[in-house]
């Protein structure tokens, strides 16, 4: 509650003195355990701000939607550490200018929410390095352990079964801060490069495209997984791809706004194990 009150006051001050034109945060949702994205432009709207452990959604995608930053004014945004990493990646991929972003950082342990010190991404570089070295403990997921034990055939069958539920609503794409392409490959229809059908092949095509495109860019915020209306455990795909990128290229995405994107850069000492 203290953190929430403190941030309400900060947002009001920064709006009043013209530092930011808007802050993006959370407000109560339609049930007690839900939170909705909130766009704060006035003091009254700031009073709707909620900050607690149920504020999970990574809001950074809104920064690059429909030209929010095109007037070069500053926008404040509430972010957990993985959201700050998203901002760094978006900056590294030239999608936004970090000088336009005022970060209201927060994190939570259990039900306790606490502020993170700093306002610009560089203020958090020590924190992000620390997270890289000592990733926060996550609860064991029995399904993940099951998948890790599968051989290639079993894994293929498992994912085929999971993807069979896919309806190609693209909620995973739309919820992802990294899926900012003006025209996604699956929407490129002159000609239609990827089938639009959500049959077995089509669902595989989409999910494989998505997995590869997010490799080395995903911060595992879980937006895609939570957005999926048919409950495909997408987080496991992204976690695994992130691990491959760390193991293969020593690349932990989102450490700084100038970090080179791993799949868009070349290093002489890259391992070549993937070249057949």
């Amino acid at each position: 509650m203290i953190t929430q009150e403190k941030y309400r006051t900060t947002v009001k001050e920064l709006l009043a003195n013209g530092t930011i034109k808007m802050a993006i945060g959370y407000r109560p949702g339609s049930t007690s355990d839900r939170r909705r994205p909130l766009f704060i432009r006035t003091s009254e709207e700031a009073d709707q701000l909620v900050l607690d452990s149920t504020c999970i959604t990574n809001l950074s995608g809104y920064l690059v939607a429909e030209g929010l930053l095109s007037d070069e004014k500053r926008v404040g945004i509430f972010l957990r550490p993985e959201g700050i990493r998203s901002i760094n990646i978006l900056a590294a991929e030239y999608q936004l200018n970090v000088d336009q972003i005022v970060i209201f950082g927060f994190d939570s342990t259990g039900r306790e929410v606490r502020p993170l010190q700093g306002q610009t991404t560089s203020d958090f570089s020590a924190l992000l390095s620390e997270i890289r070295e000592n990733p926060p403990l996550t609860t064991k997921e029995p399904l993940l352990e099951r998948i890790e034990k599968m051989n290639a055939k079993e894994r293929f069958d498992f994912w085929q079964q999971e993807f069979s539920r896919c309806i190609k609503c693209y909620a995973c794409r739309q919820a992802c801060p990294m899926c900012y392409c003006r025209r996604c490959i699956v929407d490129s229809n002159q000609p239609q490069w990827v089938n639009t059908s959500s049959h077995t092949l089509g669902n595989f095509e989409w999910n494989v495209v998505r997995a590869f495109h997010l490799s080395g860019r995903c911060v595992q915020c879980g937006n895609c997984d939570r957005a999926c209306p048919v409950n495909i455990p997408l987080r496991f795909i992204n976690q695994r791809m992130a691990k491959e990128v760390v193991d293969g290229f020593d690349h932990f995405a989102g450490l700084s706004p100038t970090q080179e994107p791993v799949l868009a850069s070349f290093k002489k000492d890259d391992t070549e194990t993937f070249i057949l």
Partner: peptide, 25 residues
């Protein structure tokens, strides 16, 4: 609609939304 992310979750789960596209594969 400021927070709408533009996915089709609502329309595809809707029992009455009926729009379709015809595609040659």
């Amino acid at each position: 609609s400021m927070r709408c992310i533009g996915c089709a979750s609502c329309t595809y789960l809707c029992p009455t939304c009926h729009c379709f596209d015809i595609q040659d594969e």
